[in-house]
């Protein structure tokens, strides 16, 4: 049984996200509003994840979230404070939140980090997701370390 027919058999609770024509093509399975399986099979690196979260050209999470990164000035407050997100969310919940948050909240402002935009995307970003699957795994590994015990 191929991957696709397996998915067909599981239709309903399971949905396949594939983004073809994407340099960072990501393929993931959604189960009950989560993505349980690692996107790469390789453990995430929290230190790399922190850098990706800060990088304005990559995660740029500080545009919208307060995080325990006092060395960076001016944290946004469009989204919730992520200082304790490691206590309140599982990796599977974080993964869908980062890959394509519109799957759980269609109206959200938070960008989908693994789904390229489709409307008037600047040429140099056409067909490209903001992050690679491994960068998302790294960010998740970093978020899991945020337990509310770090200075903000």
């Amino acid at each position: 049984m191929t991957y696709r027919t397996l998915l067909g058999a599981l239709a309903g609770a399971v949905l396949l996200g594939t983004f073809a024509a994407n340099a960072n093509a990501a393929e993931f399975m959604v189960v009950d509003d989560t993505i349980p399986a690692s996107l790469t099979g390789k453990a995430g690196d929290p230190a790399a994840g922190k850098k990706t979260a800060i990088n304005k050209k990559k995660g740029n999470c500080l545009a919208c979230h307060v995080m325990p990164i006092p060395e960076e000035q001016f944290h946004g407050n469009i989204g919730p404070n992520l200082g304790e997100v490691g206590n309140t969310m599982s990796a599977a919940e974080m993964r869908i939140r980062l890959a394509d948050p519109k799957l759980i909240n269609p109206g959200t402002i938070m960008p989908a980090f693994l789904k390229p935009g489709t409307t008037r995307v600047l040429k140099k970003f056409e067909g490209k997701a903001i992050l690679t699957p491994q960068e998302v795994e790294d960010v998740i590994a970093y978020l899991l370390t945020l337990k509310g015990d770090l200075p903000q």
Partner: peptide, 12 residues
Amino acid sequence: TRRGALDMSCAN
């Protein structure tokens, strides 16, 4: 209308 790589509308 949402647009761009970040897929946001002005209203967002």
